[in-house]
């Protein structure tokens, strides 16, 4: 890894933290502000690629674990990794890695729809699978109940998928050469 790779990992870990400090999105119709840290997951994956994107989120989680209040709502510390919903957090680095990997694979044909599809696979399917698997395995919640309990969060995450995909496309057009091929 070059010094630039290390700096990019740190910067995107920091972006994910900043996304937790401010509500970035407002849900249409309901007007509920959504803190958008999974945007950081999707951005890190689609802009940095698998390796650097996954590591950026890993760095972020380690900093949360050692006691920085970087999660939305100023939460942090070792305790959040023992909670009922910790599986969602553990999924983030894997999701960023997967989004990055799929982006690298489709780099030549990358467009808005592929970006949306990739973000859905990594940012929703994988994150929910991780979160729900944790609830079922660790917290003993029946699978169907865990599924239904997670449904209300899907609209917000769908919005984030769209925003992250549009941002990735806009940035790709802008940043083609300096960023180069991810990974």
């Amino acid at each position: 890894m070059t010094t630039r790779d290390l700096v990019l990992i740190a910067l995107f870990a920091a972006i994910t933290a900043v996304l937790g400090l401010f509500p970035a999105l407002t849900l249409p119709l309901t007007g509920v502000p959504v803190t958008a840290q999974t945007l950081g997951v999707m951005l890190a994956g689609s802009l940095l690629g698998a390796r650097r994107g996954g590591l950026a989120l890993l760095v972020f989680l380690v900093l949360v674990a050692v006691g920085l209040p970087l999660l939305a709502g100023g939460r942090g510390g070792a305790a959040v990794f023992a909670g009922v919903t910790a599986g969602f957090l553990f999924s983030w680095p894997i999701a960023a890695w997967l989004i990055g990997w799929l982006t690298e694979k489709t780099w030549e044909r990358y467009n808005l729809w592929r970006a949306v599809a990739i973000n859905i696979v990594g940012g929703i399917v994988l994150v929910y699978a991780g979160g729900i698997a944790w609830m079922v395995a660790v917290a003993g919640i029946p699978l169907d109940k865990a599924l239904y309990g997670s449904l209300p969060f899907i609209p917000g995450d769908a919005l984030k998928v769209a925003v992250a995909a549009a941002a990735a496309i806009a940035l790709r057009r802008y940043q083609q050469h300096p960023l180069g091929h991810p990974a």
């Binding site: 290390l6 970035a24 300096p178």
Partner: peptide, 22 residues
């Protein structure tokens, strides 16, 4: 109210900064 108008410039500034810091 436009999340893209916020996210894109912030990320561009961040990517530019990465080169300088490295």
């Amino acid at each position: 109210g436009n999340p893209l108008a916020l996210l894109v410039p912030v990320t561009i500034q961040t990517l530019r900064r990465a080169d300088q810091i490295a």
